[in-house]
């Protein structure tokens, strides 16, 4: 519980969240969303919720990023309409 570290990680989480919804490129947005999940996992581990942090690291940063990328590979670069 070091509040300086908390504040730093929280700032980076907010930056990553804003970047995820701002980036136009789908693959880039998925990767930044993975970074967001991992920073959130760091924040939870730092706050003492190790079990939640573990779930976030495996599911949020691992599997959901892979599933997003697998879904993005089924799309095309430019929209048809």
């Amino acid at each position: 519980m070091i509040w300086q570290l908390d504040l730093l990680i929280l700032l980076m989480v907010v930056i990553c969240a804003i970047a995820t919804i701002t980036i136009r490129d789908l693959l880039g947005a998925a990767i930044v969303f993975g970074a967001y999940s991992f920073l959130l996992c760091l924040l939870w581990a730092e706050m003492g919720a190790v079990d939640v942090a573990f779930t976030e690291a495996t599911v949020g940063a691992g599997i959901s990023t892979i599933l997003f990328i697998a879904a993005i590979f089924r799309t095309t670069r430019r929209s048809k309409d």
């Binding site: 079990d51 779930t55 495996t58």
Partner: peptide, 17 residues
């Protein structure tokens, strides 16, 4: 300890993925 069936299962699945 932290973890459990769900997290371990996700890790095992991630190895095959």
């Amino acid at each position: 300890s932290p973890g459990g069936g769900f997290q371990g299962g996700v890790l095992l699945g991630a190895a095959f993925i």
